[in-house]
Computed example of a mutant assay.
Amino acid sequence: MTKNEPTTHGAVLPDTPVQDEDGPIVELRGAGKSYGNIRALHGVSLAVHPGKVTCVLGDNGAGKSTLIKIISGLHQHTEGDFLVDGRQVRFSTPREALDKGIATVYQDLAVVPLMPVWRNFFLGSEITKGPWPVRRLDIDTMKKTADAELRNMGIVLDDLEQPIGTLSGGQRQCVAIARAVYFGARVLILDEPTAALGVKQSGVVLKYIAAARDKGLGVIFITHNPHHAYMVGDHFSVLRLGTMELNASRDEVSLDELTNHMAGGAELAALKHELAQVRGVDVEELPEAADLTAPVSTPEGAS
């Protein structure tokens, strides 16, 4: 498949209405997901606008993974509405989500560590040349395209022949982001991209999240780190036990408030009250809930 051949990968379907410039690309209205008697997600509303980073935060078991699976087409919602470009949808497969321009970069990045960078960039969507049935990989074109697209995102690699497994975690994340942008993503879902990275590499990934936003993509940044979220986020949604605890824009919430929601300020206050009943625990020496979530240092050089 060449870049110029007709394809639905990452493209908007012909019957999709023209997107309102100010309207959301993806929107959930009171969406939820139940697995039998287990309600994993309930009453979640979320809007992803072009050129904006929507941060979804939550502790383990909060429902972040279920939310990703609904938007990316792995699972179907069982309540509420799911809209793309203002039209209700119900994806059956991730390919249908890709056809609408919704791409997901998971923590494992879906790369082959021993393959070169350029080969991973086109993995599953290789450019070929020559007549059928003796078509072959157009290696030169793929190398040049991968290099150009990576540089366009500000990623400069000395050798695209090096196995992608030799890159740092932050660099691999950035290659995955550039790949999604090249193949037509309009909404980019990033699943905990900084979870296993150090401070410096986290800063690198945050920089490229901002770059994707500046290119007009709607970004869903899934994270449990409020400091990383606040550095690049335009809107913040905090999930707790499958429900939306906070849904606010950047000018409506401070970093301290966001961190307090993430840490469970109400639960911490209740815990302090319970500890007051325990002999030998001086709760007067314990900090208040807000103090327990004091901000820490942020990555240098991140934007």
Rank of each mutant, 00 (worst) to 15 (best):
5 E>R: 14
138 D>A: 08
220 I>Q: 04
166 T>N: 12
152 N>K: 14
196 A>L: 06
143 K>Q: 15
58 G>L: 10
36 G>H: 10
203 G>I: 08
222 I>R: 10
139 I>L: 09
239 L>K: 06
288 E>S: 15
302 A>I: 03
198 G>C: 06
68 I>W: 00
237 S>L: 13
223 T>M: 09
61 G>S: 15
249 S>C: 12
172 R>D: 00
194 T>H: 11
287 P>F: 00
40 A>G: 06
191 D>H: 10
166 T>R: 14
112 V>K: 00
78 T>S: 14
160 L>V: 04
46 L>W: 12
203 G>C: 08
57 L>E: 08
300 E>H: 06
259 T>S: 15
272 K>F: 02
8 T>N: 13
262 M>P: 05
64 K>E: 07
274 E>R: 12
84 V>H: 09
205 V>T: 07
158 D>L: 05
180 A>G: 09
287 P>A: 00
213 R>S: 12
248 A>H: 02
106 Y>F: 11
181 V>D: 06
126 E>M: 06
129 K>C: 13
278 V>S: 02
178 A>C: 02
263 A>C: 03
11 A>V: 12
50 P>S: 07
32 G>E: 14
146 A>H: 00
284 E>L: 04
234 D>P: 05
232 V>K: 12
302 A>R: 13
144 K>S: 15
23 G>A: 15
121 F>H: 00
176 A>K: 04
